[in-house]
């Protein structure tokens, strides 16, 4: 079953993704190096496994970069 998300501002259709944990792993990201926001709410790393995704969710995945 496919899912349509707005991921970092871009619409994306994803297969075989039902939780935040699936999404982060599917994107090849190290969960220890990113933070996830779902519909403007922080998703704590400890609940990635149990946080389900639904069509239309707005997801932001961020990390630290260089800055002053």
């Amino acid at each position: 079953m496919s899912l349509t998300l707005v991921l970092n501002g871009e619409p994306r259709v994803l297969d075989a993704v039902s939780t935040v944990a699936d999404l982060v792993a599917g994107l090849g990201l190290d969960p220890r190096k990113v933070a996830v926001e779902r519909n403007l709410e922080i998703v704590p790393r400890s609940v990635y496994d149990t946080t389900g995704l639904v069509d239309g969710d707005r997801i932001e995945i961020v990390h630290f970069i260089g800055g002053g």
């Binding site: 970092n8 990201l29 630290f64």
Partner: peptide
Amino acid sequence: VTVALRRVNLSDSGKPMLA
């Protein structure tokens, strides 16, 4: 060190990371 927070580049998730 100061750091900024930005979207992960999803088209190139293998890019080097600050950390």
